[in-house]
Nucleic acid binder design. Structure first.
Length: 123
RNA sequence: AGAGUAGGUCAAAUGAUCGCUGCCUCGUGCUUGCCGUUUUUCGGCGGCCGGGGGAGAGGAAAGUCCGAGCUCCAUAGGGCAAGGUGCUGGGUAACGCCCAGUCCCGGUGAUGGGAAGGAAAGUGCCACAGAAAGCAGACCGCCUCGGGAAACGUUUGUUUCCCGAGGUAAGGGUGAAACGGUGAGGUAAGAGCUCACCAGCUCCGGUGGUGACAUCGGAGGCUCGGCAAACCCCACUUGGAGCAAGACCAAAUAGGAGAGCGUUGAGGGUGGCCCGCCCAAGCUCUCGGGUAGGUCGCUGGAGGCUGCGAGUAAUCGUGGUCCUAGAUGAAUGAUCAUUGUCCAUUGGGGAGUGAUCCCCGAAGGAAACAGAACUCGGCUUAUGACCUGCUCUAUUC
RNA sequence: GGGCCGUUAACUCAGUCGGUAGAGUAUCUGCCUUUUAAGCAGAGAGUCGCUGGUUCGAGUCCAGCACGGCCCA
C-alpha cells in the first residue's frame, strides 16, 4: 500500500504457507478438484477459501530415483513461483508428474504448463 | 605405442538476476499467543513481516551386509535352544573390518585370490559307469592243486578244454576319485614280501621365529580316499527391539486414569523355552490420562586439517588450528554469460613412406553415478576425469 | 528411515538328505462327433532372476547384486 516496489519484489517468493503440507489437503484436492491433463502432468484445481493460492506436488516412484524426482519438484515450484500472479487466485493447485516428466528441462515444463494456463483463461 | 596391474586426487570454476531452509542481529513494524505489573499504557518471551550478515548434500549420502554409540524393555542375570566367527601376530570403542606375515591356488610377469581348526570322536553321502566307492572285495586275467575229456607219446607224462578248491592285486577296462610311485631282488604267480631313491603320515630331538610355520637329523609302521559353504566336535562370541526408539505439551470424542501398600493361584509383559524379575484382582489417596496436532530427541563428534614423535604398516601419542546441513508432502535450486575439459566434423601448419601424432582456429554436442533423514567405523555395489609407480609384448613393424 | 519375504514352462505352483527339472491350466496335432465343447492319446516349450565360490557334480549349499511385494505411526 505504501509503494508498489516491495509488492513487486514479494511477488516471486514462495513461502512455506503457500505449500500444501497436510495429507488431508491433498485428499480434499484429489476428491473435489477439477483436473486438466497434459502429456507429462495432471493438474488439479480446487478453491481453498484463502486469500492466496497454494501448491502441492506429487511425484511418484515411477518417475525415477530421488535425484530425478527432486528435479521435477523444483521445476514445478519454480514455475509456480514465477507464474502465480497469472493463475486463478485462492485455489489449491496440485500437480502430479507422469512417468516421463524427468526427461524435461525447465523450459519444456514452462511451455507445457503455460499452454494449459492460456486455454484455462480462454475458457 | 599397445595390453595389463597397483595406488592416489578431484567431483568443473567465476559472476549477475530471481528464489528456498536453519542460525545471528536490527526494527517508533504487526500480533487475536504466554508471563509480570495493570483501567489503558509499558516491559520480557514467542510468532509473522521487512533490512543486514553468515552457512547449506556425498564419495559413495545408495544397498541395509556387519560392528558400535544412544533410547526403552530389569542396572540384561542363570541354564537350554538357536545363530555368528574360525591360519598366526598386531590395530581398534567394536567388527565378519584394516595392517603385517605363514601356507595353498591362479597368472610369463607386475600382482591377485582364499569361511585356511578337526575326517586315525561319531553319524551320513559319494548318482551313472564299474568286479569293487571304504573296518572291504575279485569280473576278465595270471598261477597252483584235485577231478574229467580229447590229442600225442614206450611208462612217470606233455598240451588244450571243462568243472571244483584256493593264492594273487602286476595288467585290462569304469570313474572326479580305485588302497603310494619308479627300479631291482624275490616268487608257482605275485604283493612293502625285502632293499634303494622319491612323495606322504605319526612320534622324538636340534636350530630360527612371539607365533602360524620353515629347516635339519633320527625312529616307526609301511600307506591311512574325498565331502564339515552335510549333521557334528572343539575354541571364541552374541539378550531383544529399534529415533516410526523414547520423553513432554495437548483440541474433539469416550468414561475412567494415575500413585502408594500388598498374601496365594490363574493371567499378562520382558526374545524361542525353563528359572528369575516386573505388572496384576483388594485397600487408601489424588485428578488427570490420551488421539489429531505440536515440541524435544537433532547434531560438537571414537570430528576434520596440519606439525613432530613411536611403529615395516594399520594405528597411536602430543602440540596447533577450525566449527563444517539439520529438512519433515521433506530445504542447498532455476536462467543467462565467460573460461576450462572431453568427443566427433571441418580449415591451416609441422613430424613421418604410411597408419597416426602435435599446434592454432571455427560452428556444434557431451559432462557420469547419484540427494542427508539419529550419529559414527567398515564392507559391497554404481560411476566420470586426471596423475603416479610397476609388468609384459613389439622395438623399427 | 527401519524391519521382513519372494523370483522355476505363456500362467499358477511342486521339487524331501546335492546326482537326467515335474504337475495342472493354456497352445498345437490326431481320434471321437454333422461341427463346437467335453473326453481320450501324443507333442512342443526352461540361460531354474544374475554373477562368482564350495563340490567330481549345484534349482538345492554359501556370498554379492538386480527386480517385485508386505509391515510400522
Amino acid at each position: 500500500m505504501v509503494a508498489s516496489a516491495p509488492l513487486l519484489k514479494r511477488r516471486f517468493s514462495f513461502r512455506r504457507h503457500e505449500r500444501l503440507r497436510r495429507r488431508k489437503d491433498y485428499e480434499l484436492a484429489f476428491r473435489h478438484g477439477s483436473r486438466r491433463h497434459t502429456q507429462n502432468f495432471t493438474i488439479i484445481l480446487r478453491p481453498n477459501g484463502l486469500k492466496f493460492s497454494r501448491l502441492g506436488v506429487t511425484v511418484g516412484k515411477k518417475v525415477g530415483n530421488a535425484v530425478k524426482r527432486n528435479r521435477v519438484k523444483r521445476c514445478l515450484r519454480e514455475f509456480f513461483r514465477l507464474h502465480k500472479h497469472k493463475l486463478p487466485p485462492s485455489h489449491d493447485l496440485v500437480i502430479v508428474a507422469k512417468k516421463d516428466a524427468a526427461t524435461l528441462a525447465y523450459n519444456d515444463v514452462r511451455e507445457e504448463l503455460a499452454a494449459v494456463l492460456v486455454r484455462n483463461n480462454c475458457i
